[in-house]
Computed example of a mutant assay.
Amino acid sequence: MKNTLVKMTLSEQLYDILKNEIMSGTIPLGSKITNRELQERFLVSSTPVRDTINKLYQDGLVKEVTKTGAQVINFDYGYAAEINEFIAAISCVALTMTATRGADKEVTKHLRKYLKKQTIAQDDDAYFEADFHFHKSFFDFCGNQFLKETYKRYNLIRFLLIKFAIRTAEDRSCSIKQHGEIVDAYSSGNFDLASQLLQLHYIHGLSLIKEYNP
């Protein structure tokens, strides 16, 4: 059986690089990215650069797109609060849908897997990767592709903000403890409680975002 090679376009490669740099903080919130600088840095024409910036704009990671470039989103608590509220609402819907579909055993297995990964994470990347997949588990098994795609798009912005908001070991321990409580309630079949705990978890995340001062 032959291996299938996936060829990426220049704009797709640029997009992955810039998205990762924004998410990691290498490109700070509020900073400007210009077409010329990107063309010189990557030795490419203006077309893949414009395509990349437009894709970042669709993701909500940049704003004020002009002929010369764009600006990475800045910290705005009101915007963050609305995003957080929206993600919390659809997450609770996804949780309920997994239970209705009888996918709770499979979801529980994934939740415990990523909770363990969070607990033993040795660095930021491993911790936040596990955190992302923990929450994504409900969407992966909810049976609704539109809900899954909506989460994937809008959670990126919340994830960017919460990644900078969780700064201490105490923040992490609290989040892990809350995840554990969600798993306990969900795995025991108490889905209403699990949904309530998930909602409280997002409220707690918003309190951390509020304290963030870039």
Rank of each mutant, 00 (worst) to 15 (best):
Q178G: 12
Q199P: 01
R50K: 13
L111R: 02
E129P: 00
N74R: 07
S137V: 05
T168K: 03
G205M: 10
L10F: 07
C92P: 00
Q118E: 15
Q178D: 10
L56K: 01
A80K: 04
N155V: 03
G102P: 04
Y57C: 09
F132W: 15
A121Q: 11
T96F: 08
T9E: 11
H179P: 00
I157E: 04
E37I: 07
H201T: 10
L156A: 09
V93F: 02
Q39H: 06
Y186Q: 03
N213M: 13
F146H: 09
D184Y: 08
K177V: 06
I182R: 06
Q196L: 12
L200C: 12
P28F: 01
Y77C: 06
K7M: 14
G205S: 10
T68M: 10
K210M: 10
H179A: 12
D51S: 13
D192Q: 12
V49Y: 03
E82A: 14
N3I: 13
A81H: 13
Q178F: 12
L197H: 02
R101E: 09
I120P: 00
T119I: 04
C92I: 07
L95V: 08
N155C: 06
E64G: 06
K109D: 12
Q118P: 00
G189H: 09
G25E: 01
V62D: 03
D16P: 00
E129Q: 08
L43Y: 10
S175E: 14
L208T: 05
Q71E: 14
Q118T: 03
V6H: 10
K32V: 13
L200W: 08
T98N: 05
D76M: 04
N155T: 03
S91G: 06
D184R: 14
A126R: 11
F75L: 08
A165F: 03
H179L: 01
Q196F: 05
E12N: 08
N213F: 12
V62E: 03
K63C: 07
Q13E: 15
A70F: 04
E64H: 09
T66C: 04
A169M: 08
Y151K: 09
K116E: 15
I17W: 00
G78S: 10
D171M: 05
V6T: 14
D104G: 04
V107G: 01
D125T: 13
K55V: 06
A194I: 02
H135K: 12
L147V: 02
H204M: 09
Q39A: 11
K136P: 00
L208Q: 12
G205Q: 11
T96V: 07
E129T: 13
H110Y: 11
I209N: 00
Q118Y: 01
V62H: 06
H133K: 14
S207G: 04
T9N: 08
Y79C: 11
V65N: 04
I87E: 00
K210L: 12
Y15F: 15
F141N: 09
L95C: 07
T34W: 03
N20D: 14
T66M: 04
K116M: 14
T100D: 07
K19L: 03
T66S: 15
E181M: 08
M23N: 02
I209W: 00
F128I: 05
E37D: 13
G180I: 05
A89K: 13
P214W: 04
Y15I: 02
G143H: 01
Y79T: 14
T9R: 13
R41D: 06
Q122Y: 05
D124P: 02
T52Y: 04
I120A: 06
H179K: 13
K148T: 07
R101G: 00
S45P: 00
H110A: 14
